[in-house]
Amino acid sequence: MGTAVPPASYTQKDVLDTFGITDQRIRSIFLRGAIERRNLTLPPPGPDGRPAAETQSELLRKHTETGLRMGREATERCLKDIGAALADIRYLCCVTSTGFLTPGFSALLIKDLGIEQSCQRLDVVGMGCNAGLNALNAVSGWAAGHPGELALMVCIEACSAAYVFDGTLRSSVVNSLFGDGSAAVAVRAPGRGREQRSPAPALLRFSSHIISEAVDAMRYDWDESHGKFSFYLDPEVPYVVGANVETAVQRLLEGTGLRTGDIAHWVVHSGGKKVIDSIRVNLGLSRHDVRHTTGVLRDHGNLSSGSFLFSYERLRDERAAVPGDFGVLMTMGPGSTIETALVGW
């Protein structure tokens, strides 16, 4: 796999000072959320020296340019990581929720990188932070039907292109949380005569748990007062997720003979400190169990659909997983939904 972020990294204090935010309530939101730094693509300074206001058109251009640059870097690093070439890619799935493009990132990356024109593709757009696992489900299904052929999923989230700056507490929570990033992961089912064991885990099964009564808890929709799209995050989200996460995991493990205590590795979306704490408490996990998730939150913030892959990369690099271990991948997002996958080494 491979990841990429913009070159500019800002502490939370950097962001507050850059935008000239002095309201102590807003500063508290930024400084007490367990996030130290985020990679962001901030607008150039205006006449007053502070970042200039951006129109929806400018934000969409940022989404395209920043996203394409990060997606290209993540894809190239992923291929280098597995010793593959661009010509080996047979299926490309791109995931994003920070802007709407037609044609989408899959077509743009195929052109930009010179991927074979016969490459099959899919764009998953607008599903939110949970979308990485929804897309991985589709990618693994394609791979299972094409043994030995290489599929790539690339999550591309330019969250700097999806914000409203109005000084309210509602928008400040969102603006304090998200960072820019892209993550690419390769998926390949063993082909005939290629049954050697891989150090990467096998995707064993997927499960969804949709909380329909909280359908409006997370939204990205048009804000008439600002003339652009904005993200709404209900303050009850951590408690909604926490109240349902045990059911979601039980559904995933049903029929496997496994229990929560049998899971050695937890790769969870870095949705925010309160969300992570709620999941940890309700599943009886230790801080060590979610160390990679909290580490990604600390260093990058919430990277939307690709967050869990940044956490998985840290688990992989740690080399803590051994044959026979099981792990759970988990993402949460609009719907409201908790997506899970069971993996085994």
Score class of each variant (00 low, 15 high):
L108K: 04
P199M: 07
F178M: 05
I210W: 05
V164S: 04
R192W: 15
G132A: 10
C119P: 00
P103G: 06
G126Y: 05
S176F: 04
L136R: 00
A184V: 05
E213Y: 11
L204P: 09
G126A: 07
A158Q: 03
L177I: 07
D166Y: 02
V185N: 03
L86F: 02
I210M: 09
C129N: 09
G141V: 01
F206T: 02
K111H: 13
V139R: 01
A217S: 14
V124Q: 03
I156K: 08
S106F: 07
V154Q: 03
G104T: 01
G128D: 04
S198F: 14
D123S: 07
G179P: 11
R188D: 07
V174D: 07
V139A: 00
S171V: 10
A151C: 06
W142P: 02
D180P: 06
R219W: 11
L169M: 13
R194L: 14
A144C: 14
L152R: 05
W142E: 01
S182G: 10
R170K: 15
G141P: 07
V174N: 01
A151Q: 01
C155D: 06
I156H: 07
L109I: 00
G193E: 08
D123N: 09
N130C: 11
F105R: 03
R205H: 10
E213Q: 12
A202S: 15
F100W: 13
S97Q: 09
D88E: 08
R188I: 07
F206H: 02
C94M: 03
M127W: 05
E195R: 13
S208T: 13
A87Q: 09
R205F: 02
L203N: 04
A138K: 08
E116L: 14
S118W: 10
R90I: 01
A143W: 04
V174F: 00
